[in-house]
Nucleic acid binder design. Structure first.
Length: 433
DNA sequence: TCTGGGGTCCTTCAGCTC
DNA sequence: TCTGGAGCTGAAGGACCC
């Protein structure tokens, strides 16, 4: 038993519901609780603090420091000032003028995440990642080998701490939904077991916003119906919920409010869409600038598709106006593509069809949906198509990028003012054959 | 106060075919 | 031949999550 297990084992009984009985796991209140929800504490900030121990104990936030940045992660010291994720950076700085701001380093977070997920997969193959910093685990098959779920959970917490240098919180329950609530309840650096026979007692006093799928809008609807707690929702006829929220959400909330969650932990099959979007530093009304941004995003999306071996059939553009209203437009292609030039042609057509004249935009995005394996994707062959086309040209760009870095080869339209080929010539776009 | 970026899922509606 | 309904698909938008 490592030191971290002993120190954190003391926290195992925190909360008024948990009954797991300590690091030795002698109690069996975790019977019938095979689902673990593991959530890293202030993940991005914790990753940064590994290499900046001098910042420990200080209010630290991670996020873009541009004029329109928002907080991506905040340490618990920063949260004491009222700072939370998704808050505009300007407001965070007003709340805590001394806050330390660090730019995000997603490569680092991905690396730490991979290490953490590897620990999970050591325990069970049934790991369902929700994001870089959290996952569900079904440990039913590991109990014989590793002990009861609460002991497994404590072991995971110890390993994450010892091997990755960050802390995490684990919720243990009979269903995914309750396990997730349990981890939220026990944060930070905690462990909470909600025994199967205490689920309703645990759930019903919580506010409706605790239910999965209840955000700002749904909460408003429920409050208008006079429903403030999960117990209120549970004691409302399903028909009423369905009328107010639609059949799927109404039934879903009714089930969750009684702790019914039939979803099992599932290893994800793969992504369903890949996209990129970008907020301009200042609103833009020049169609040429917007088309250039669509080109840049299309190239980026295509490069990601190829890197992951996907092609997609539906191209979606997203346009956000200066007043923050947002529209999307999409088109389904005859055959899937992973070629930036094709994605851009569709994105540009969709944008041009909007006929926006000089409307001020704050964001544009490009997304490709309907993904399938690029090798299995049917390709539309044209009679006059050359043997080697844009796909091969872009694959060559991928190879150059891998060797010399991002942006080494890119469409001439994306070159900045004053950039040229270094020999005094004009920029040259890839021109296969 | 002034709102990022990457996603998923659900609902509604229109158009098409049978 | 016309009409209405069912079922499917694509498009668009909204809500939600981290």
């Amino acid at each position: 038993v490592s030191r971290s297990q002993i120190t954190r084992g003391a926290r195992i009984t925190q909360g008024d519901v948990t009954s797991a009985t300590g690091p030795a796991g002698t109690g069996r209140d975790d019977d019938g609780c095979p689902v673990l929800h593991v959530d890293m504490d202030a993940f991005y900030a914790s990753c940064e603090l590994r290499s900046r121990p001098d910042l420990a104990g200080l209010p630290v936030i991670v996020g873009g420091d541009g004029s329109r940045g928002v907080v991506t992660a905040a340490t618990y010291e920063a949260r004491k000032y009222g700072i939370h994720s998704a808050m505009p950076m300007s407001r965070a700085k007003r709340l805590c003028p001394n806050v330390v701001i660090l730019p995000p380093d997603f490569a680092l977070y991905s690396e730490v995440s991979a290490g953490v997920m590897a620990i999970f997969r050591d325990v069970t193959p049934l790991v369902e990642p929700l994001s870089l910093d959290e996952a569900f685990l079904d440990v039913a098959g590991a109990v014989r080998r590793l002990g009861p779920p609460a002991v497994i959970a404590e072991g995971i917490r110890a390993r994450v701490h010892d091997e990755q240098g960050i802390t995490c919180t684990v919720g243990v329950a009979s269903t995914k939904f309750v396990a997730k609530l349990a981890s939220t309840h026990a944060k930070p650096d905690g462990l909470l077991v909600v025994p199967a026979d205490r689920v309703v007692a645990f759930l019903h006093p919580l506010p409706v916003g605790a239910l999965w799928g209840v955000g700002e809008k749904t909460e408003e609807v429920l409050l208008r119906l006079g429903l403030r707690t999960v117990g209120d929702v549970a004691n409302t006829p399903v028909d009423t919920l369905v009328r107010a929220l639609g059949p799927a959400a109404g039934q879903h909330l009714a089930d969750l409010s009684w702790g019914r969650d039939p979803r099992s932990v599932e290893v994800p099959e793969g992504e369903k869409s890949i996209g990129n979007e970008e907020t301009f530093p200042r609103d833009v009304d020049d169609p040429e600038v917007i088309r250039r941004e669509l080109l840049r995003l299309s190239e980026k999306v295509a490069s990601r598709l190829r890197a992951q071996g996907f092609a997609g059939r539906t191209v979606v553009i997203k346009v956000r106006f200066a007043d923050f209203s947002t529209i999307t437009r999409s088109r389904t292609l005859r055959s899937p593509t992973d070629v930036g030039r094709d994605i851009y042609a569709t994105a540009r057509d969709l944008y041009d069809a909007l006929g926006l004249q000089r409307a001020r935009l704050r964001l544009v995005g490009v997304r490709v949906e309907g993904l399938l394996d690029a090798d299995e994707a049917p390709r539309q062959m044209l009679l006059d198509e050359p043997e080697l086309g844009w796909r091969e040209a872009e694959q060559a760009v991928d190879r150059a990028t891998a060797r010399f870095g991002r942006g080494t080869v890119r469409p001439a339209r994306l070159l900045g003012p004053g950039e040229h080929d270094g020999w005094g010539g004009t920029p040259v776009a890839p021109r296969p054959r």
